[in-house]
Design a protein around this nucleic acid. Structure first.
Lengths: 180, 180
DNA sequence: CGCAACATGTAAGCGGTTACATGATTAC
DNA sequence: GTAATCATGTAACCGCTTACATGTTGCG
């Protein structure tokens, strides 16, 4: 499932512009699926070119025309087809863990700085989760609740693990033997 | 940190061939950093071209020459420099969670199949972790232990969450209203 | 007889990131 | 005045994936 398909899925919630979708990628999808304008706008163009969405241009004074995309029946079929893949992947690419693998080559201060940074990133996610929840969960689908809960659970587990085990990663490292 | 740098880091453990490194990417690094031959061999060539590793060709009968790469002082400096980045990222890209966001458009059976598949993937990781541990952890660095523990903790948290919450994702969906 | 393991590499392609390009409005 | 928000897009680039290409040894 690529950015195109996710955009299509988001449009089942109602018509939206590329700008709107970007905000959704940053909020509810922020913890597991990143996409910038450079992916979103071409994706929407492609969906329109392939007749999966319609586009309504709304003139605005000062600002560029707002383009409201709306999913159509062909788009809904395409999405449903994509959702039939029962083996969707869940990929992690962690430069953080890679760095920790080589902690014995680093200086103690740097290791702790890396861990602090990771904890702060996790905090940002947890704050994001709180913001999302505050904006009302009454009309949420079970799927959306499941995904949010998943993010919260995993973030909490990571935070606890780092806090409980950071002390094992030395204050004084073997960096000297590596440099000299 | 890219594949090049991770290869360089792996070589601090001792000389190795591209084939050897691939196995390490599959085992200890399997849960957070994927790389195939198509990335590894060009990475090693690049490292050799840039004087960060030396290469010893070992003739073998029948098989192609085995190329043993060895990190040198320039390589060690390069690695140490890369490890000074105290903001290494930890990226997740989950088609699984994206799919679950649209669970209300899916049929109940398919949703459960997706969850079953995810659980089986998690099981595979946990089995991998067990295999790694059985091959002796006595000479492991604290960093390696930390990373393995991190993987185990996160995998366990995911598994528990999915098992405890899968029942919220309906048996009978609203798929009919989406198709019709 | 076939498959897994050993062993190296190239080339095309794909998907996403980053930087660039533009510009009005509103809030501090 | 200056930063953020609204609003859209292109083009170059980068890094990784996938498919292709080759060939032996040894096990069941």
């Amino acid at each position: 499932m690529d950015v195109k398909t996710v955009c299509l899925g988001m449009l089942t919630d109602g018509p939206a512009s590329g700008y709107d979708l970007k905000k959704e990628f940053e909020s509810s999808f922020g913890h597991f699926f990143a996409a910038g304008y450079g992916s979103i706008y071409p994706a929407l163009s492609w969906l329109a070119d392939n007749g999966l969405v319609s586009c309504e241009e709304i003139a605005q004074d000062g600002k560029p025309d707002r383009k409201l995309y709306r999913i159509n029946e062909a788009g809904r079929q395409f999405l449903l087809e994509a959702l039939k893949n029962t083996q969707p992947c869940h990929k992690v690419r962690s430069e953080f863990l890679a760095t920790m693998c080589f902690a014995h080559l680093m200086e103690g201060e740097d290791i702790q700085a890396v861990l602090d940074h990771r904890l702060s990133e996790i905090s940002r996610y947890r704050e994001l989760f709180r913001n999302i929840e505050q904006e009302g969960m009454c009309d949420w689908t079970e799927g959306a609740k499941f995904v949010l809960g998943f993010g919260k659970t995993v973030a909490a587990a990571m935070e606890t693990y780092i806090k409980e085990n950071r002390h094992t990663l030395a204050t004084e490292s073997t960096a000297k033997s590596a440099t000299g």
